[in-house]
Computed example of a mutant assay.
Amino acid sequence: MASRKAVFPAAPHALYQAHGYSPAVRSDNLLFVSGQVGSHLDGSPEPDFEAQVRLAFANLEAVLVAAGCGFEDIIDVTSFHTDPESQFGTIMAIKEEIFHTAPYPAWTALGVNWLAGFDFEIKVIARIPEGS
């Protein structure tokens, strides 16, 4: 049976404790990252959409780093959007800054009608490099 270990970033935001979930779970050489949002440390959403997406990616990066990974180790992405049509351009521009060379991760984007006060959420599966 594969071992499981919770992974927390150096400065975890309040949502993990408030809602009782781990930012990520490591199982052997895979990292399953919970949905990351543009949350400030106190758990409040960043009101500006572009800044919220950038903060979600920063929160994601903090979790990846805590596990010894980086964006280049991401295999699969699922993102959630409250208004995909109007948000698509902003998200794609930021995505291209982060994932600017192939091979790109697999990506599924879903339109949703509620994200608890947020407008963007991203969850990933990453492969943890040997030695991390």
Rank of each mutant, 00 (worst) to 15 (best):
P129M: 08
S132R: 04
L31G: 03
S3N: 11
A93V: 11
F71H: 11
Y16A: 10
L41K: 05
I74A: 11
F88Q: 14
E96H: 14
C69I: 04
V77L: 15
L64H: 08
R127Q: 14
F71T: 08
G43E: 01
V53N: 00
E97S: 15
S86R: 15
G89N: 13
P129I: 06
E96P: 01
F99D: 12
L31I: 11
I98K: 09
V37D: 07
Y16E: 07
C69R: 02
H40I: 01
E61P: 05
P23M: 06
Y104T: 10
E96F: 11
L110M: 14
T82H: 01
I128G: 05
L110Y: 10
A102T: 09
F71I: 11
P45K: 04
E97P: 10
A67Q: 03
V65Q: 14
G131R: 01
I98L: 14
L41T: 02
K123S: 13
H40A: 07
L31P: 00
Q87N: 12
V124F: 14
A67Y: 02
D83Q: 13
A6M: 02
R4H: 14
N59T: 06
V63T: 15
T78A: 15
S86L: 14
G70Q: 13
V7M: 10
N113H: 10
T101C: 15
D42Y: 03
F57L: 09
N29P: 03
G89F: 09
D73T: 09
P23C: 07
A56D: 03
Y104M: 15
A2V: 14
D42M: 05
H13L: 03
G70A: 14
L30E: 15
R54P: 08
I91S: 05
A10I: 03
A66Y: 07
H40S: 08
I98F: 13
A24H: 07
R54W: 01
A106C: 11
F71R: 07
A62E: 06
L55Q: 04
N29I: 01
A14G: 04
H19G: 00
Y21K: 07
P129N: 01
A18F: 02
F49K: 10
G20S: 03
